[in-house]
C-alpha cells in the first residue's frame, strides 16, 4: 500500500498543515512517510508544493517521480494544473476552485476550471465558500483535506483524531471549526 501525494498552493495558503495532519494519521497506522517541503524565497507569494509519500514499505526518494503521483491535492486551481506532469494515468486531481490572484495576468478562471474538468479523475469544489458556510473561514485547506479523504485512503475518524491532536494547543474553538470544515469537505469527496 502506498500513496504519493503532491500538495499544491501558494505560499501561506496552509498546505503544510494538510501535510502535518495526513502525516499524523499515517504514522498512527505505523506507515513510513517522507515529506519534501519548499522553504525560502518561494514562500513569499510564489507557487509552493510538498511531496508527501506514504507507504507500508521503505520509501527511498524524497521526491515523487514524474508520472507516479496518486493524488494532486491543491488549494488553488491553477496550482493544481502546474503539477500535472507528476500525475499517474489513474491519479486524482482534487482542487479548490477559488483562485488566489496575486499576479498581474491571472488567466481566465473558466479556462482553468475547464482544463481541470478534462482530467479523468477530478474533484473541483469551492472550498473558500464552503469554509465560510460552516463558519470556519480560515479552514479552506481543511475542507480540501475532507474532500480528499476517500482518495487518500483514510477513515474520517483518523483525520478527526489528527485535527484534535494537532490543533489542541490552539483551543477548542479552533478544533471545532476545523472539524466542521473537515465534515463539510467529506460530504463532497
Amino acid at each position: 500500500m502506498k500513496k504519493d501525494i503532491i500538495l499544491a498552493g501558494v505560499g501561506g495558503q496552509g498546505i503544510l498543515t494538510i501535510a502535518t495532519l495526513i502525516g499524523y494519521a499515517a504514522l498512527k497506522r505505523g506507515w513510513n512517510l517522507k515529506q519534501a517541503e519548499v522553504h525560502g524565497m518561494s514562500q513569499r507569494g510564489g507557487d509552493v508544493q510538498s511531496h508527501l509519500r506514504l507507504s507500508d514499505e521503505p520509501i527511498w526518494s524524497d521526491l515523487i517521480p514524474f508520472g507516479k503521483a496518486d493524488i494532486i491535492l491543491s488549494v488553488e486551481p491553477m496550482e493544481a494544473l502546474r503539477y500535472l506532469p507528476y500525475l499517474s494515468d489513474e491519479g486524482w486531481v482534487i482542487t479548490n476552485s477559488t483562485p488566489f490572484n496575486n499576479i498581474a495576468k491571472y488567466p481566465e478562471i473558466a479556462d482553468i476550471h475547464n482544463r481541470v474538468k478534462e482530467i479523468k479523475n477530478h474533484i473541483l469544489i469551492d472550498a473558500d465558500s464552503i469554509a465560510k458556510e460552516v463558519k470556519a473561514n480560515r479552514s479552506m485547506n481543511i475542507v480540501m483535506l475532507g474532500a480528499a479523504t476517500k482518495q487518500l485512503g483514510f477513515e474520517p475518524d483518523e483525520l478527526k483524531e489528527a485535527i484534535k491532536t494537532i490543533f489542541s494547543k490552539k483551543g477548542d474553538v479552533i478544533v471545532e471549526a476545523n472539524l466542521r470544515a473537515l465534515e463539510a469537505g467529506l460530504q463532497l469527496g
Binding site: G45, L84, D89
Partner: peptide, 26 residues
C-alpha cells in the same frame, strides 16, 4: 531512470493556461 535506460513515464504537460507565479514582496 533515463540514465539507466529504464522506461520513464511523465504525466500530462503543464497546460498553456498556467501562468508563472514567481515569489514577490508581501
Amino acid at each position: 531512470a533515463r540514465a539507466l535506460g529504464l522506461p520513464d513515464k511523465v504525466g500530462a504537460d503543464i497546460p498553456d493556461v498556467v501562468a508563472p507565479r514567481p515569489p514577490q514582496l508581501c
